[in-house]
Computed example of a mutant assay.
Amino acid sequence: MLYFADAPTLVADLATGAAPFSAYLWIGILTFTTYVLAGHMREQVCLYMCPWPRIQAALTDEWALNVTYRADRGEPRMSVKAAKKAEDLGLPAGDCVDCLQCVAACPTGVDIRDGMQLGCIQCGLCIDACDTVMTKLGREDGLIAYDTDMNIERREQGLSPVYRLVRPRTVLYTALIVVVGAVMVYALATRGFTGVNVLHDRNPIFVTLSDGGVRNGYTIRILNKRPIERHYSLLIEGLPEDATVDAVGHPIMVAGKPMITVGPDTTEEIRVLIAVPADSGLTKSSDIVFRVVDTASGESATASDFFRIE
């Protein structure tokens, strides 16, 4: 919920019971849906709602390291006693004892022995479960491990495993990650520390005054992204010189412009009324620009809107 409101203010209001009902309602809805989806519908979420399995299937190849059941070593499956009898008779016996601990440990109920599946989230819990069983049986661990499909085939052919970490696919993915990371770093390094949003009154859009002039109302939200208190001057561009600007609750004016003080790391919402005389010469709808300027650093931010006279 802190994405949709000023975080420190909302936290304080929630603690004191002063937050709006909608905040408590949506926190309740999000808590309930999170509990249901994560606590009772995990398998369905992973199989039908989560995009990761589809992404994983598209990105992986036969050389990719994935949680893998080494069928070349585990098959044929049989109990410990059956494996002992098979060995005595000179018959093949795999290390898998069909204990199903890998399935029990999987949060989505996947049987990794059936190969890669959409429900597998690569958490590796089946690896830990299988290694525990192998250790108790005195067998080598790693029956389930991070491996590649190519190595499974190579071992079945009596060849040693080969790992190719550097290949065209991994080079491309690395390049994409570097490009995206660079864009994010650049955006973070060059981001502004001032923001402004404007919402025009909808009902009514304009008001005709007793002297024939026209007034429009706006709600302006100024964002101060620095950890210090800052003072902003408010300029309206695109209006005639005889237009008047009134920032409700902020009577201080400097050079005819309202001054607004915004605390550190907070936002300030103000009500602004703009009036023009009857003979202003404006068209039916005129584009205007709201500009807030930090009086100390000169940093500014703008937002566009319109002024209606009929």
Rank of each mutant, 00 (worst) to 15 (best):
D149V: 10
S210H: 13
Q122G: 03
V103N: 00
P277R: 04
L137T: 14
L199T: 09
N66C: 09
M259N: 11
Y232F: 15
G256W: 10
L14M: 13
D242V: 06
Y69K: 09
A86F: 02
E87F: 05
L125S: 13
V196G: 05
A57F: 14
G192H: 13
C130I: 11
S210D: 15
P277A: 07
T174D: 00
V248N: 04
V272Q: 03
R271T: 12
E229W: 02
T108I: 12
G256M: 08
T302K: 14
I260M: 04
A255I: 05
L199I: 08
Y24E: 02
R226H: 04
A247F: 06
I177Q: 00
A296I: 10
R164H: 08
A57T: 08
R308D: 09
L223F: 04
C96R: 00
G195F: 15
K85P: 00
I288S: 09
N197Y: 11
T283W: 06
P53A: 09
V262S: 14
G138Y: 10
M78A: 11
I127W: 02
P240R: 04
L10A: 05
L47P: 01
A175G: 11
Y69I: 08
D149S: 12
P92I: 12
S286I: 07
I55F: 11
A275D: 12
G238A: 02
P258D: 08
T60R: 15
V80G: 03
T31A: 12
V45D: 01
V180W: 14
V183P: 00
C120K: 04
G94Y: 02
A301Y: 13
G212M: 13
V162L: 09
M1G: 02
I288W: 05
T33W: 04
G298T: 08
V248P: 00
T261H: 01
R308Y: 09
Y69S: 11
C123V: 07
Q122Y: 04
G119E: 13
S300E: 08
T194E: 14
F290E: 03
